[in-house]
Design a binder for these strands. Structure first.
Lengths: 111, 111
DNA sequence: CAGAATCCGTACAGATACTG
DNA sequence: CAGTATCTGTACGGATTCTG
C-alpha cells in the first residue's frame, strides 16, 4: 500500500469535527443554509440572495449539501423548469451548531 | 437590530460562522488543537502525533493558529532550539465549540 | 429557468533539500 | 531541533458559453 493510499484511507475516518467542517465548510454553504432556514427557495432566488457566488459554485455547493443530506432538491417537470431547495431535518439540526459558532466568533473575533 | 439582521449585514463581509470556520477549518488545525488540549507540546512532538501532515503544512497551520490568537508559541533561545506550543485562553474557549460540532457529527453522520 | 460544459488562473498542498 | 526555501502538482473558484 502506497503512502498516498494510506493517507486517503485515513481521510475517510477523519475526526467528527472535521467531518462537520467538511459539510458546512464550503464558501457558500453557510449563506445557502442561512437563507433556506427562512424557507424554501428556488435556484434563481438563491442566486439573487447570494449574488457574489458564481452560478457554477452555487450549483456545486447545492449538490454537495444535497448529497450530504442537508438540503432537499425538488425538481418540477415543467416548462420552464422549476427547482425548489429546502432544508432536511438534518439540515435544520445544524442550526444550533451554527449558532454556537456564531456566538463564539462574536465573542472572540471582535476584530 | 434583530439577530437575523445582524447576520445578514455581516454576511456581506463574512458571517461569524464563516469566520469561525476560517479559524479552525485548516486540514491540520483540529488535530493540532486537539493534541494541545492535552497539554503543551514541542514541534517534533506534534509531528509525531500528526505524522500525515507534512512539516511545511504543520508549520503553516501553527503560524495561522498563532496569528489568530488560538495558540501560544514560546521559543527558547537554546542550542538545540526548543519551541513549545500551548493553547491560549481563546484557544481553550474553542473546546466547547468543537464538542458541539463533534456531537452533531456523531449523531448525524453515522455513515 | 436551471443548469452543464469548457477554459483558465490562482491558491493550496506535498516532496525534497538546506540551515542557524 | 525547528524550522526555510524551492519546485511542482492539484484542486478550487471564476468567467463564459451553450442547452433542454
Amino acid at each position: 500500500m502506497t503512502r498516498k493510499q494510506t493517507i486517503q484511507l485515513e481521510e475517510r475516518h477523519r475526526c467528527p469535527v472535521e467531518m462537520t467542517i467538511s459539510v458546512i465548510g464550503g464558501r457558500w454553504k453557510c449563506p445557502i443554509i442561512h437563507h433556506l432556514i427562512d424557507g424554501t427557495k428556488r435556484f434563481n432566488e438563491l442566486r439573487k440572495l447570494i449574488p457574489e457566488a458564481s452560478q457554477r459554485m452555487l450549483t456545486k455547493h447545492l449538490r454537495e449539501l444535497e448529497s450530504d443530506g442537508i438540503i432537499h432538491r425538488k425538481v418540477f417537470a415543467e416548462v420552464p423548469p422549476r427547482t425548489e431547495y429546502s432544508l432536511t431535518d438534518k439540515g435544520r439540526s445544524l442550526e444550533s451548531v451554527l449558532w454556537v459558532m456564531n456566538d463564539w466568533a462574536e465573542k472572540n473575533l471582535n476584530s
